[in-house]
Design a protein around this nucleic acid. Structure first.
Lengths: 301, 301
DNA sequence: TTTGTCATTTTGTCCAAGACAAACGCTTGA
DNA sequence: TCAAGCGTTTGTCTTGGACAAAATGACAAA
């Protein structure tokens, strides 16, 4: 499968997140990718094409259209990526360069120490809402520039998780209200947003229960009712199709009893607000605090 | 997509882990599943067929052959599953019934408290190597019996992760040897095994760095060398195809410099030992301790 | 009894080209 | 400024055939 420098269509599907069908139809329509064939007539993708596909994937996630990018040259793709790169919000007390250096050099222990010190210095809430957000952007950009490999991205993600989960754990709240259920829809894989939300809400005394990613709608409803939750909070990464998010949210709103609030946040929803009756859209992590305040005002006994 | 009680072929692929191709070819060959069709002529799987597919998946993971199970009735499947159900190892200080009750009732806070108390009482190592193992089995069996839904499985997994990560974090070792890199192969999604291994090894003073799941082989090599690791440890869940594991391990062994040890553990490897020259197979978590001892003896200065 | 080789099923994945609905982006009209 | 209409783009689903890798079973040799 991973022989030498050639990848099967399954490997490419896994590595790029593009379905086999999509890969085949792009080849037919745009002439790219154009894999070799092995003895069996099966597609065999050279490494460079797979890497180009990853760049394309990135651009699609940013909203570009396939017809504009799939046929473009690698140089053009890189140019587009650097053009659309948002300027990173300042990471506050952290030298972004130093940070990236630690990730790139696999200095995992130092990386973790540094993150933990930041938590202590800034407090959990500010760390999650500002620093982690900024670091995510920095990592994303470095990835676009080809400065990181998969493994380094993983390392970063693991260490952030460790630090956040540890810090959240030490805030063991006493079960006060509201009780918030955190999760994502079935097609969403990224769970870091949930952890960041938890990090902001738990210090305020909310009881947060995360049930991880990819929960079917019916199960969310069951869990929310059985667990006597006050709020169900969903997270959507930038890659999540907006349409699907809106549709699913409205459907879930109809399934939940009206006394359970529904919150939705994440990159996919930034700038959207229409067609979401009865749903509180969370625009950033500070806004999550505002939403919590609103809920408490409304439910003050 | 998830309208009412009907699921698209994509949803079923996601929920069961069976590829679209497999679903279609089973329908052609064995007459099951036999989905309805929507207005567009697309397959629309009723909920009960999806659930039956999950039972089948479970049996396949246990080594049954598709021809024997795909055409069988639901009752027969359940019978097979209960027959092959291994008797659960005793969970030690925990009433398994009590535990399952907490998961099933979504008493997440109590669940977490109970787990944390167990860690304190048993110590992290015994907790990970005995209790968590037993609980995993209990959860798996309850799931087969249809007593749990996806969401409850997620809840359990999240809470275990929280407790383990917290406990590991408080053992912050001082960077002593060996330095162990923990990860899984690209097709492996389950990361709990990594965390359990970490929980056993960290209290012994090893420096464990987990880079999460699904790391390409080339990246593992790069990370191992760049991070100056002494050991690379891989985890394989029961669902992982043995053949692929052995092949990948041998390939990785060839890519790594000989001074870096390679350890492999997890349900998929239990009972295997052939064709793994230069690889230390870890049969259970106690054995991980033995492997650590061996390494230290060999590298004593 | 165990071990190794061979032939025979079984089984998952891949291919091709066509079809179509949903989403997009544009223009038009209020 | 927003809503509605209309081509165009685009991902997913379809069918049926093909084939290699894996599992099984039969048989011979150590």
């Amino acid at each position: 499968m991973t022989n030498q420098e050639l990848f099967s269509i399954s490997s490419v599907e896994r590595d790029t997140g593009l379905s086999k069908d999509t890969l085949r139809v792009w080849e037919r329509r745009y002439g790219f990718p154009q894999p070799d064939r092995d003895d069996n007539g099966d597609r065999a993708y050279p490494r460079e094409q797979v890497e180009k596909l990853r760049l394309i994937r990135r651009l699609l996630d940013q909203g570009k259209r396939p017809s504009k990018v799939v046929a473009a040259s690698t140089a053009e793709l890189v140019a587009m990526l650097e053009e659309t790169a948002v300027e990173a919000p300042q990471a506050g007390d952290i030298g972004e360069t130093d940070f990236l250096r630690l990730v790139r050099l696999h200095r995992s222990v130092e990386l973790r120490t540094m993150l933990q010190q930041l938590v202590l210095k800034q407090g959990l809430q500010r760390f999650a809402s500002e620093t982690v957000t900024a670091l995510n952007v920095a990592i994303g950009q470095a990835w676009v520039r080809g400065e990181l490999d998969v493994c380094e991205e993983h390392l970063y993600s693991e260490q952030i998780q460790n630090v956040l989960r540890n810090a959240i754990g030490s805030h063991s709240g006493g079960g006060s209200r509201p009780r918030i259920l955190l999760t994502t829809f079935p097609d969403e894989q990224h769970g870091l947003g949930l952890l960041m939300a938890e990090a902001v809400l738990v210090p305020e005394g909310a009881t947060c229960i995360s049930i991880g990613v990819q929960t079917p709608l019916g199960d969310i409803r069951t869990a929310a009712i059985a667990g006597q939750f006050d709020v169900v909070a969903l997270s959507f990464s930038g890659a999540f199709p907006v349409r699907q998010a809106v549709e699913g949210l409205n459907q879930l709103r109809g399934m939940l009893p009206p006394e359970i609030a529904l919150w939705a946040g994440g990159a996919a929803l930034q700038g959207r607000r229409a067609k979401l009756d009865g749903i509180r859209v969370i625009y950033d992590l500070h806004d999550a605090l505002a939403a919590l305040g609103e809920w408490r005002t409304k439910h003050a006994t």
